[in-house]
Computed example of a mutant assay.
Amino acid sequence: MKRGIYGKYNNKEYKIIADMNDNILIMTEDKAKIDQTFKETNRGGIFKKIVEPQELSECESIFSYCLIDDVKVNLIQEREYQYQIETSDLLIGIKLNLPRIDRDKWLGWIPKSNVTLIEERKPFNPLDLM
C-alpha cells in the first residue's frame, strides 16, 4: 500500500518528501537501492538522500482508500490479511461494526477479502515541494 509522493531517481522508485529547509529528499528501506551517498535516518532502517527536483522523473501523488459495500473509508495500514480502516461518519461506523475510539472516529481491522482497494494516482511536480 502506497501513500504519499513517489518518483524515480536513476530509474528506481523512491518516496519523496521535503524537509523544513525546503530540501527534496528521496527515501527507501531497500538497501539494494542505496549507495554511499544515502544517509540512515535516526529511526534506523530508512535511508534518505537530498536530490534536485530535475533529477526526478515520473513523480506521482498516491492516495489509497477502500470501498466496502460501496462505502468509501480511509485506509490506515495493512497486515498480511487485513486492512485497518477508519471513518468519522457515525452511520458508516455502525454499519461496518467498527469500534468507536473517539467522539468522531471509528477504527477497526477488516479482512482484505471484504475490501476493494482504490489507489488514486496523479502526476506531481516535485518543484511544488519547494
Rank of each mutant, 00 (worst) to 15 (best):
K2R: 14
R3E: 15
R3N: 15
G7I: 06
Y9D: 08
N10M: 08
N11L: 09
E13Y: 00
Y14C: 08
K15L: 12
I17R: 12
I17Q: 07
A18G: 08
D19S: 05
M20Q: 11
D22V: 05
N23A: 06
L25A: 03
L25K: 01
I26C: 04
D30F: 00
K33R: 04
I34A: 08
D35I: 03
T37F: 02
F38W: 01
G45H: 00
G45M: 01
I50E: 14
L56T: 13
L56W: 01
S57H: 05
E58K: 13
C59L: 05
S61D: 14
S61W: 03
F63G: 13
C66E: 07
C66R: 05
I68R: 03
D69R: 14
K72E: 15
K72W: 01
K72G: 10
V73G: 11
L75N: 11
E80F: 05
Y81A: 14
Y81K: 15
Q82S: 15
Y83W: 02
I85C: 08
E86D: 14
E86K: 08
T87E: 09
D89Y: 01
L90I: 10
L91F: 07
I92F: 01
L96T: 07
L96Q: 05
R100L: 03
I101A: 03
D104F: 07
D104R: 06
G108E: 03
G108L: 01
W109L: 09
W109Y: 06
S113L: 06
T116V: 11
T116W: 00
L117N: 02
I118T: 07
E120N: 13
P123A: 13
F124M: 03
